[in-house]
Design a protein around this nucleic acid. Structure first.
Lengths: 254, 254
DNA sequence: CCTTGCGATGAATCCATAT
DNA sequence: GATATGGATTCATCGCAAG
């Protein structure tokens, strides 16, 4: 089972999966951020918030961007609690977030039972400058482990800072992450393990996981993006497995 | 008055200063961090927490590292509230912190009345590696403004990521900041303005401010470090106001 | 002056042992 | 059983001396 992809609500889908099925959680939930007031944050769509006026690309909108701060923390806690149940002891969880939601994300992670281990930084060199102040050119990765870190199972030494611009060419999702970053991050998963992304969007986490020889479970609410993810995952799988592996295990249909 | 330096408790000293006396606050309070349990954090000294075993330098310890998380947030809020009173409208405040205290620092900043504007990153290339996980090689700068940002008064465009190792040569303080970083950060202060650092340690913020032609008000609790700060500030002042000074930065020493 | 090699260090962290 | 103490760890980077 190199990968399985589920289209549906993350909580509902995770409820159907067995305990300790995965070795690592890496996800990039909708930030519910991007506005100074509650009204600005909750009444606009993702496209209105995250795409500059006048930009002409035709990327689809995505849902899940209408929670206030309290509700977002609650929603994230519920999901991380389910993800905790699905994880083996010692497994890491890596959650992308932006500066406004770092506190909420760290709280939700710990509320869900994870031991908070740190914050890593994804630096976007091409971010927009800011007059009179400090450019906000980073997003953050709040990470923790289920109990003690299982360092002996996977003695990697990963950086705490990743610098890469958002994909421009062939971008499928408004907030798509660079594969170069994701390929590094999935190395936190022990060899041969399974990576879970319960907000997988266009599936970059899964593509990186398959490229590194890991298994992947992805969940995406939007049928549009689930379709894109499936197509990208299948392409990645074909590129990483030779003809002699065919028939061993195809993508599991949902 | 290019600079004034006060030795004493920050709250007590700030109480003696008039409203709207400064244009910018940049400070690096004790993080009260460095341990997994409350006991580990509050019962050890700064040296015991932050200096590796076997290290030979003999830098002095510093106080203020014995607060639990709640108390730290309270203490920081009180100080940032006084600093808010001392700041002109539109002034920025930049507060250094580590990953464990990012949330508390952002809360304290906002509780004190400041408008939170973002998080900048100070990356330390020589940080310690971490087995099985992501290296924690950054500290963070939580920043805000008193009301709306006064960008028209000081149209600078500053980076959001600063990469520089901690000073090693001629280091005076366990947690001394690199001058290369501080020289960039003080540019957020309008030309000719006054920078306040109410936890000034060995005075790097002030040295950078003087080198950029700004005035400086420093407060430091420890008589030992206040003495070091005074000496460094006087040296910086002599170097920047010398007869053949052409507005260039001084020597690149720590 | 530039290159190479060696040793020391890090706003730590982990684990075993002692109290 | 919870907490305190001590020693080992790990590598990119930096300072310094030698070549």
């Amino acid at each position: 089972m190199p990968f399985s992809l589920h289209q549906g609500d993350a909580l509902m889908v995770m409820a159907t999966l067995p305990d300790q099925a995965v070795d690592c959680v890496i996800t990039d939930p909708p930030y519910n951020s991007g506005g100074r007031t509650t009204t600005e944050r909750t009444s606009r769509t993702a496209r209105a918030k995250y795409v500059s006026g006048g930009v002409r690309h035709h990327l689809a909108d995505f849902d899940g961007e209408n929670k206030d701060q309290h509700s977002y923390g609650y929603w994230l806690t519920l999901n991380l609690t389910e993800a905790y149940r699905l994880s083996k002891p010692g497994s890491p969880a890596l959650i992308f977030t932006d500066w406004r939601q770092v506190s909420t994300t760290a709280d939700a992670l710990q509320a869900a039972g994870w031991t908070w281990q740190g914050i890593a930084t994804w630096h976007k060199p091409a971010a927009r400058p800011r007059k009179g102040g400090l450019r906000q050119d980073s997003e953050y990765i709040v990470w923790g482990t289920k109990g003690r870190i299982a360092a002996s199972q996977n003695p990697v030494y990963l950086p705490g800072l990743y610098s890469a611009s958002q994909p421009r060419k062939d971008r499928q999702h408004i907030t798509q992450k660079p594969l170069a970053v994701m390929r590094q991050l999935v190395r936190i998963c022990p060899p041969g393990g399974t990576v879970l992304d319960f907000c997988c969007g266009s599936g970059s986490t899964g593509v990186a996981a398959l490229q590194q020889g890991l298994d992947f479970i992805g969940i995406e609410m939007s049928p549009h993006y689930a379709g894109i993810a499936r197509s990208r995952l299948e392409t990645a799988l074909n590129q990483t497995t030779g003809p002699d592996d065919l028939g061993l295990a195809g993508p599991e249909e949902q």
